[in-house]
């Protein structure tokens, strides 16, 4: 990672290396007797694309709202771009683009007018640049043709893309996207991923929340998993994906035969519902496949077990909604 190189002298000594675009410590928010977020210590490394993963109601949006200074934490501290929030909002938020809780626009105004209104409120926007910035943002999300139609008539996907355009009005240090792919078709989802990749390439830190693991896997360099208001895991995506003992899942009707031949070769394995579970301890995947093929067992599929994150997330979401 090249994150440390992004730290400029102007940021000040408050940010220790490795630089963090956002940081929370002991963050807690209660609404009456309901605990929405509790003991959240979140680190968003500068330059990272951090996916905030969690089922609905796990505290993702509340955490984001506290990061942006929209909500006062009950306890704990928030630091955004090196400044405490919400006190430093006027310093930091001009550098932050955010799309929180769905796009908010006025139905009777056109997409362009809605963006103009937001652009006028952006402190870092030069007045003379408003018109061109709005045009550029609209074209970046592919809404140029619909720009002068009323927002009321937009489809869900167009609304979401207009929201994205409002974030892209200015070059940002940090972009926060709360469930950006909600309600989007696959093409729209790909669009969002492309924009996130572009932002990442330009050095912008991106914080994206989602309740879908696949989306996080596809776009993020880092991940934080929230569950019932607490962070249960966070780190680099690759590390979390690889965590735990590697194993292979073998799909075969000839369970007995396969099991015997593997055990003969000193490979630890056990039977599962529709095949075998093979631990890759002291052996390797090619060797396992070779043994199975030589035993004459009919092998339909062999795949690597995605440990750690997937397992964890599966456990979290089980019994939550389904």
């Amino acid at each position: 990672m090249t994150t440390t190189s992004l730290v400029e002298p102007g940021v000040g000594a408050a940010v220790a290396a490795p630089a963090l675009a956002a940081r929370t410590r002991g963050l807690r928010k209660t609404y009456g007797s309901t605990v929405a977020v509790d003991q959240v210590d979140l680190d968003v490394p500068d330059g990272a694309v951090l996916g905030m993963l969690g089922p609905n109601g796990s505290g993702k949006t509340t955490t984001i709202r506290m990061l942006l200074g929209l909500v006062q934490p009950t306890a704990g501290e928030v630091e955004l771009l090196g400044h405490p929030m919400p006190g430093g909002a006027q310093i930091t938020l001009p550098h932050v683009g955010a799309l929180v809780e769905g796009p908010g626009f006025h139905p009777f105004l056109s997409g362009r007018e809605n963006l103009r209104r937001i652009a006028s409120a952006e402190p870092l926007m030069a007045t003379s640049a408003i018109a061109s910035s709005v045009d550029e943002a609209l074209s970046r999300v592919g809404l140029s043709d619909a720009a002068d139609r009323r927002y009321r008539g937009y489809s869900l996907g167009m609304k979401q893309r207009l929201g994205l355009a409002s974030v892209l009005l200015l070059p940002r240090r940090l972009v926060v996207l709360d469930e950006p792919t909600n309600g989007l078709d696959p093409a729209g989802t790909r669009e969002i991923r492309r924009v996130i990749a572009e932002l990442h390439a330009a050095g912008t830190t991106v914080l994206v929340s989602s309740h879908l693991l696949a989306e996080i896997e596809a776009t993020c360099t880092h991940v934080a998993v929230l569950h019932k208001g607490s962070v249960v895991a966070q780190g680099e995506l690759a590390e979390l994906l690889e965590a735990g003992a590697p194993a292979l899942i073998v799909s075969t009707p000839d369970v007995e035969l396969s099991l015997d031949s593997l055990r003969d070769n000193g490979i630890a394995a056990r039977s599962t519902e529709d095949g075998l579970f093979v631990e890759l301890i002291g052996t390797s995947a090619p060797k396992v496949v070779k043994v199975l093929v030589e035993s004459g067992a009919e092998v339909h599929e062999v795949r690597r077990r995605r440990t750690g994150l997937e397992e964890l997330f599966a456990q979290l979401t089980e019994g939550e909604t389904q």
């Binding site: 929209l70 909002a89 932050v96 929180v100 908010g104 626009f105 937001i118 409120a121 402190p123």
Partner: peptide, 14 residues
Amino acid sequence: NHGTLRGLLIAPVS
């Protein structure tokens, strides 16, 4: 109600 107040607060407008 339209969610646009939040947009102004994030801009930010004090």
